[in-house]
Design a protein around this nucleic acid. Structure first.
Lengths: 165, 165
DNA sequence: TATTGTTATACTCTATAACTATA
DNA sequence: TATAGTTATAGAGTATAACAATA
């Protein structure tokens, strides 16, 4: 730290701000580029949108199914949107609504057998695309990136806790 | 590398794929969370959307203005959308269309004085938000993140070149 | 003919709010 | 009353394609 040149505080703050801003723009452009590629390939190769794929992914992780309200929370969108997406997927026989014993207002949404099989195929491609799109980074660099993002997400580092222990 | 356990190649590939997938999901969630926050604050505090802010940012970097076609390329959306955004911003007197001498089909879109002043205010807030939202990372960690993203973006590392030299 | 920009249209995702049925 | 889900509606962003004016 002593090796840093002494800068006027305001100038230095300004320079740091610009560095954060450049970092953010790069983070955004990298992420958007990958996301757009995935979105486009999902549409071209499977005729599905990212939100629909994500909803199926939620269901795949919960074989017992999820209620509309749970889906709404997990996908972080309001209920009306979930209704629309589930309607579409149900129209294609990829998911189904099942009565929920004990509460006739709600029901469980599950993948159908066809939905599970379709999702498996899509998920394999999706995973391969992600591997491909992240391949400029070595395994070690991916670990580093993951760790930095953990810090960004949680506001502190798992390593810090380890260091403190 | 020799310290790694010998794993069946397929199992290992699978594990790596899962690591890349988890990394991607984390990258996506971190970026989306920050972007959503910025989008929401821009709307609440300045009544502007991110695409409109971005278009103004493009113009701010080019005081001589940009044609619709140039804006379309830089914002990576098709021309009709640029027309709509410019129409809205022009309606609020934040940008203006100026005749382009020598080609009566095209024109230069510029920030107005009011647009420049409004953008300056918004950009200051925007930068402060970015600094705030990235603040869980130390300056050094931000540098590391930036470097990893450079590798991801360009497909190779400036450091690799240094290492190779 | 090719290019610049506009218009018309359609689709997806999103949110809000009023509504129905059930708890 | 409160909750689960639906419906209706509106607004933003996006793309495509036909179009007008100009090069």
């Amino acid at each position: 730290m002593n090796s840093e040149p002494m800068l006027d505080l305001e100038v230095r703050a300004h320079a740091e701000h610009h560095a954060s801003l450049r970092l953010w723009l790069r983070l955004l452009s990298c992420t958007t580029r990958i996301e757009d590629t995935i979105r486009q390939r999902l549409r071209e190769q499977f005729g599905i949108t990212l939100p629909r794929f994500d909803l199926m992914a939620q269901l795949e992780r919960q074989p017992e199914g999820l209620t509309m309200g749970e889906l709404s929370k997990r996908m972080m969108v309001t209920g009306g949107n979930i209704t629309a997406i589930v309607d579409q997927l149900e129209g294609e026989a990829l998911v189904q609504r099942q009565a929920l014993p004990g509460d006739r207002r709600a029901y469980r949404v599950c993948l159908t057998a066809a939905g599970r099989s379709a999702f498996d195929r899509m998920a394999r491609s999706h995973e391969a695309w992600v591997v491909e799109l992240l391949s400029p980074l070595s395994e070690r660099q991916q670990q580093q990136l993951h760790q930095l993002l953990s810090i960004l997400k949680n506001g502190n580092s798992p390593l810090k806790s380890q260091e403190a222990s």
